[in-house]
């Protein structure tokens, strides 16, 4: 019951936050010096088409009405037409979102699970040389400049030893071949995904590992750990059953807090690997002054982050009975 209430509150919060973000973007783009029409409509089209689009998007109306149109357009999925592709923005977003979700979700889950697992193990060796070594290694991985390590990986794993494709998400020959089954296609995507995944994994895992390690060390000083030891549990049982579930809670929180940061990394990874995701699309759109596409891409990325935060919150409540049970 409490969990439901919590969920409801968080969903409302997300709506409010998203609405505020939308409003701020609107204000920035409509009040900034320059012609807002030029930002929303491709002026290289014929004057009739421009007039049509302006009317369609409500750009000829007073500001407050434009604002209402803007909100309405968002909820009806009308984001205008991409200058570059000449297609409705929503269509492009619809294509770009799934690859991003696939890569981003997999990378985040893998990094968090591995970070928790390894952080737990390394806390056993506190103060030993291996602890110092792993700590420094994790710090180094955590601060590696992501685009650079991505380039290095491409250079080594794809170019030098040729284990993985250089870029993209699928091999055209497989996808146009009607004989190729689901497994072949899935295998192909996985083959393309491994290198970007590895990049994100290397950069993101270190942080979670370090948090888990220190959280473990903190938890091991709790009284209930002493109780568990006194009960005659083996050291392994003490750590796995009593310390780790509590120690991983702060890691879950930090996964939520670092989601925004991981999205930055995700966009960079997509760009370097030409992964056809929404982060790459945003960067591409900004470079090409394709404003409708850029705006919409950003709003959807923001939405993804907010929803991912919600999922992390639910997970936390599930892991910590103090929140889910009243």
């Amino acid at each position: 019951m409490n969990l439901k209430k919590l969920l409801l509150r968080r969903i409302i919060e997300i709506f409010v936050v998203f609405y505020i973000i939308m409003t701020i973007l609107f204000l920035l783009f409509h009040l900034a010096p320059g012609d807002p029409v030029s930002m929303m409509v491709d002026l290289t089209l014929t004057p009739e088409d421009v007039a049509l689009l302006v009317a369609q998007l409500g750009l000829d109306q007073p500001l407050w009405l434009q604002y209402l149109y803007y909100i309405k357009n968002f909820f009806t999925g009308n984001f205008g037409t991409s200058f570059h592709y000449g297609r409705p923005v929503i269509e492009i977003i619809g294509q770009r979102l799934p690859p991003t979700l696939l890569l981003f979700t997999t990378a985040t889950v893998l990094a968090a699970v591995a970070g928790i697992w390894w952080g737990k193990l390394i806390a056993w060796y506190k103060g030993k040389p291996v602890d110092t070594g792993v700590t420094i290694f994790a710090l180094v991985c955590n601060t590696l400049f992501l685009p650079w390590i991505a380039l290095l990986f491409i250079w080594f794993f794809a170019f030098r030893i040729g284990w993985f494709p250089l870029s993209g998400m699928m091999t055209p020959e497989i996808w146009v071949n009607p004989a190729a089954g689901f497994l072949a296609k899935a295998g192909d995507v996985l083959h393309h995904m491994l290198l970007p995944l590895m990049t994100l994994f290397v950069v993101n895992t270190g942080a979670y590992l370090l948090i888990m390690r220190s959280s473990m060390l903190e938890t091991l000083r709790e009284d209930y750990i002493l109780t568990a030891r006194a009960k005659g549990l083996t050291e392994r049982q003490v750590r796995n059953r009593h310390a780790a579930p509590n120690a991983s809670l702060p890691v879950v929180t930090s996964v939520g807090l670092s989601l925004a940061f991981s999205v930055n990394g995700g966009a960079l990874t997509e760009t370097v690997f030409s992964w056809p995701g929404i982060g790459r699309e945003l960067i591409f759109a900004v470079s090409n002054a394709d404003y409708p596409l850029a705006m919409a891409s950003f709003l959807f990325i923001a939405l993804v982050v907010l929803v991912a935060n919600l999922i992390v919150d639910i997970l936390y409540a599930y892991l910590d009975p103090r929140i889910s049970y009243e």
């Binding site: 709790e222 009284d223 109780t227 009593h242 579930p245 509590n246 892991l319 009975p321």
Partner: peptide, 10 residues
């Protein structure tokens, strides 16, 4: 401090 002697997640 037996308050803390019980593990909160079990």
């Amino acid at each position: 401090a037996a308050m803390n002697a019980l593990n909160p997640v079990h």
